[in-house]
Design a binder for these strands. Structure first.
Length: 295
DNA sequence: CCGCTGCCCTGCAGGC
DNA sequence: TGCCTGCAGGGCAGCG
């Protein structure tokens, strides 16, 4: 569920409330939520005790907490990696708050302050303890090394992304969702960016002009920045910040989830197409189906 | 190498 | 009321 803006809102909350604190205990309440930590739940929990959370970082939809306070040789070289999947949340909660229905992992701290809780209804998300590696001068967890920088990073190179996109032979929405091309974009912001750039989702990347590709990626940056300013997009309480509060960018969506409602630009009813076992929303008039669609 | 299908889960809305 | 189907913001293995 959460895309870049929502994950960034969570990262900021974690940075404000958790960074600088030292872990005193970890409870793994559902092993599936740490399945990517190969040595297992026990190892995950015990290795974190006594470690200080020194920074909260993000690339695309992944976020991680860098670790200090450990054995010298691993210090600053390890991190707790989190992916929220479709329904994951990180919440800062007082000790006495009752366990959430889908509470999966709890972190307690030696200052006796609020806990950090990983709550995840569908368990597509998860946590793991990972080593940092250097990719083009940026330290990222090893499982994140294969994805591209996201549009809000200093190292993001728009022209390089444009060039790579135009070399693909696929539909433009598939390309937008491909985290190895540009990271952080999901179904909502892909549809919103395509609407802003007046491109149909099945338009082949191979015949995109350079200005069209630039316009599309530029629109993706703009819509995600606007969403971040609004605190993210929340349709229900599955997406909330670390204090349990919803964002309000859903009110600014032009097409996503708006089937049958008027396009804000031309008034034509927004259509919904099935695509990749999901939905694609677009304006039939602003985003006409191309002659040679690439589904 | 690349692209695509199916699957991993739970809960909810809507049709019957 | 309940049962069934389809759908939900993501990603990855495995196949061709």
């Amino acid at each position: 569920m959460p895309e870049l803006p929502e994950v960034e809102v969570v990262r900021r909350g974690v940075a404000a409330h958790v960074v600088g604190r030292t872990v005193s205990g970890v409870d793994v309440l559902h092993p599936r939520s740490v399945r990517r930590h190969v040595p297992g739940p026990e190892d995950f929990a015990t290795r974190l005790v006594g470690r200080c959370l020194t920074a909260a970082r993000r690339r695309g939809k992944y976020m991680w907490l860098e670790l200090g306070g450990g054995p010298e040789e691993v210090d600053a070289g390890e991190a707790v990696l989190a992916h929220l999947g479709m329904s994951g949340q990180l919440l800062v909660q007082p000790d006495e708050a009752p366990d959430e229905t889908h509470l999966r992992v709890r972190f307690r701290f030696d200052d006796g302050g609020p806990q950090l809780r990983f709550v995840d209804q569908r368990t597509f998300g998860g946590l793991s303890l990972t080593e940092l590696v250097s990719v083009d001068g940026v330290a990222v967890p090893e499982p994140v090394a294969h994805i591209a920088p996201d549009p809000l990073e200093p190292v993001f190179d728009l022209e390089a992304a444009v060039a790579r996109m135009r070399k693909r032979r696929t539909g433009v929405k598939r390309a937008l969702l491909d985290q190895t091309l540009v990271s952080g974009i999901g179904n909502i912001y892909a549809d919103e960016a395509l609407w802003r750039a007046k491109l149909h989702w099945a338009r082949p990347t191979a015949n995109l002009t350079r200005p069209q590709a630039r316009s599309l990626l530029g629109a993706a940056v703009e819509v995600m920045q606007a969403a971040l300013t609004a605190g993210g997009t929340s349709f229900d309480d599955l997406y909330v910040n670390v204090n349990g509060e919803s964002g309000y960018f859903d009110r600014s969506l032009a097409v996503y989830g708006q089937a049958g409602l008027p396009c804000p630009r031309c008034g034509t009813a927004v259509r919904r197409d099935a695509f990749m076992n999901r939905s694609s929303y677009s304006c039939p008039r602003c985003q006409p189906t191309p002659r040679n669609p690439h589904y």
